[in-house]
């Protein structure tokens, strides 16, 4: 500690401040992952709880040995053998990646225009981007069901103006999932982009234009590179949760769309197969661990830079 007079110079108080949230997160956030790992190595049974072996400490050391020898990688073999799971992972990553690109394409012009807007109305624009995020994801996804379904408002409208002669089937397809993800996560893309575009040093652009650089060239060579931190933060912020998304593919994607979050959910709630859903969770976490670590790296560097 560089500054001995900082709050918590009293060691007991210091440890109470650090220890309380630390312990909470250790017990309720970190420890559960080890339990998931353990159960992913167990076997399914029809019992309460529906997995075995259970660690029976009353048998002493023998109990531990029995428990340990009952663990195996069987569920993981199942995941590699059954194409369903493999497809789920691949299509989750694909859907999340395409949605991220779409959001970047929609979000960048928005954030750029917001940063260019007069100073007085910027807070209102930021507010307008944040507001939908405060509304429940479930409600926002539900709103799209009424619009996209075959007898929904979009089809009714298009049929009325004569643009189509029979209803479009968007509902229960991947297109609907793209719309849902882009719609739900767009604020998370726009805000980091706006934050990095807003603090852009305008004198650089002026200098470029004084030296005869056309606006599009200044945009590509100055604005875009300087907004990259925002692009990176925005992409991570939407890509990671989108990979594991459940509500959107479940409500808009129908049975055709496979996404791993949905597969895990169904495995757990419909099939009551706790070990397999744990194995799916472990693999999903392994897939996401690299982007999550990168995201944290970006985050903590941001905080360090602000200090």
């Amino acid at each position: 500690m560089a500054d001995p007079k900082a709050p918590g110079a009293n060691p007991l108080g210091r440890w109470a401040v650090i220890g309380t949230p630390y312990l909470w997160l250790l017990v309720f956030f970190l420890a559960p992952f080890f339990i998931v790992l353990k159960i992913s190595l167990s076997d399914t049974t029809i019992a309460q709880p529906p997995y075995e072996p259970l660690l029976d400490l009353s048998l002493g050391w023998q109990g531990v040995v029995d428990w340990w020898s009952g663990l195996d990688f069987e569920n993981y073999w199942l995941l590699t053998e059954d194409e369903l799971y493999w497809f789920s992972y691949v299509s989750s990553l694909r859907i999340a990646a395409i949605s991220t690109v779409l959001m970047l394409l929609i979000g960048y012009p928005m954030a750029y225009a917001m940063a260019k807007a007069p100073k007085g109305i910027r807070p209102a624009l930021v507010m307008a981007v944040i507001l939908p995020f405060w509304t429940s994801l479930l409600i926002r996804v539900y709103a799209w069901i009424g619009i996209l379904s075959p007898e929904g408002l979009l089809n009714a409208f298009l049929l009325k103006i004569g643009l189509i002669s029979e209803p479009l089937y968007i509902m229960n397809t991947e297109t609907a999932v793209f719309i849902g993800i882009v719609y739900s996560y767009l604020p998370f893309m726009v805000l980091p982009l706006y934050a990095s575009l807003e603090k852009l040093d305008h004198t650089l652009l002026e200098a470029a234009s004084d030296l005869g650089s056309p606006p599009w060239k200044s945009f590509w060579q100055i604005t875009v590179p300087l907004s990259l931190p925002g692009v990176v933060a925005g992409c991570f912020l939407v890509f990671i949760p989108a990979v594991g998304e459940f509500v959107i593919p479940d409500l808009l994607g129908g049975s055709e769309t496979l996404m791993i979050g949905k597969t895990l959910y169904n495995e757990f709630f419909s099939n009551r197969d706790w070990p397999v859903s744990s194995a799916i969770a472990v693999l999903l976490l392994l897939v996401l661990v690299v982007p999550i670590a990168l995201y944290q790296n970006v985050q903590s560097r941001e905080v360090e830079a602000k200090k």
């Binding site: 956030f29 992952f33 339990i35 594991g244 998304e245 979050g261």
Partner: peptide
Amino acid sequence: LFSGMVYAPLVMPEVITGLSMLLLFV
């Protein structure tokens, strides 16, 4: 580790958080 545990839940897919907490409670 602490800062990791603070930032990770922000992006953690809900199905994983939900499942892992349930298994802890069980």
